[in-house]
Amino acid sequence: MIWAAELRRAVRSGRAIVLLGLYSMFSALVLLVVGFVTRELQAQVNAKLAENGGDPEMATQAAEQMRQGVLGFLASNDAAMMEALAKVPIVVLIVFKITLFFLPAYIALMGFDQVSGEVGPRSMRYLTVRARRSSVLLGKFLSQATLLVGLVLIIDLAIFVYARIINDDFAFGVLVLNLLKFWSATIVFSLAYVALTTLCSSLFRSPAVSLVFNFILLFVFWLMDSVGRAVGEENLLRFLRYLSPSYYSTNLLHPRLAEFAVSGAAYAAFAAVFLFGAYGVLRARDL
């Protein structure tokens, strides 16, 4: 009941429209910039080949080599993943990687007041009289997760349709299959950060403080992942990357079930830890 009520309130308040507009503007900007840079690079390659008397086959080979290089970078040079993503336009992969990097911040803006907005003015007490605190917490978490699922689906669908328009060889069957794959990967990735936002919102009575603390934690997780990847394998600091949710995003698009399952299990574990932490805080708090 709380899940449905919170979802209806979020939709009727206009927040969903604002969040969709914000996410759409950012995704469209990234899509346009990436598309422009890709076309410019291709034009420069074609111009240089034309100056050197190159034939169309050489231009095609150069373009394919450039594509394989970018695909290898995005897929961490994993042969199985590169083969599975070979038919997906590069612009979709780049936009996916960039939006995935900024998605945790978007989630924080989306739900920073889901609990603190009730705890601050003490309106939470009226809910906890009629429902368990665990039900209130889980209902608010599911409400934000459901809203995010819908928003991500709309944006991903728009990105794939745009890619289909500018790439005639992007078959409809491949589009549908990869749309479901990218959407599922984004949802698995997002649920842990929705739970983190729930935890941060439960820690403080002020929504503004919850938001700032959420951004601090996101920076700390990013720093742990970056340091863990940068140091050598003999350095003990390499283990820091395993404590950051973003480290496990690499294999969310992996074609092998075992690789995807490890990442999915890691995000499920992070979500469970954050939710249990939020429940512990809310249970001990004087409402």
Rank of each mutant, 00 (worst) to 15 (best):
F160A: 00
P207W: 06
V161N: 01
M58S: 11
F213N: 09
L147Y: 03
I17M: 12
A145H: 05
A10C: 12
A230N: 04
A195R: 10
A43C: 02
N178H: 13
L142N: 01
V30D: 00
I154E: 02
R39I: 07
A158V: 13
Y248A: 04
A171M: 07
R164C: 08
V212G: 08
L71S: 05
R67E: 09
S134L: 13
L287A: 14
G150S: 03
E234F: 11
A158M: 06
L179G: 03
L211R: 08
F172R: 11
L253W: 01
L41R: 08
L29Q: 07
G14K: 09
Q65R: 13
A192Q: 09
F182L: 00
L41V: 09
H254K: 02
G54I: 01
T198P: 12
M25S: 11
Y162N: 08
E233W: 08
A266M: 13
D286L: 04
A59G: 10
R285H: 11
Y126P: 04
M224Y: 04
R125K: 13
L252P: 03
F182A: 00
A16T: 14
I216E: 09
A195Q: 09
A185E: 01
N77L: 10
A271G: 07
D113E: 14
F73G: 14
L32F: 09
Q114G: 06
G232H: 02
L71G: 00
T198R: 10
V18W: 14
L147F: 05
F260Q: 10
H254L: 01
V262P: 05
M25E: 04
Y242H: 09
I159G: 00
R8V: 11
L179E: 03
L127A: 15
G228D: 06
Q68C: 08
G232R: 04
E234N: 12
A265F: 07
S244G: 08
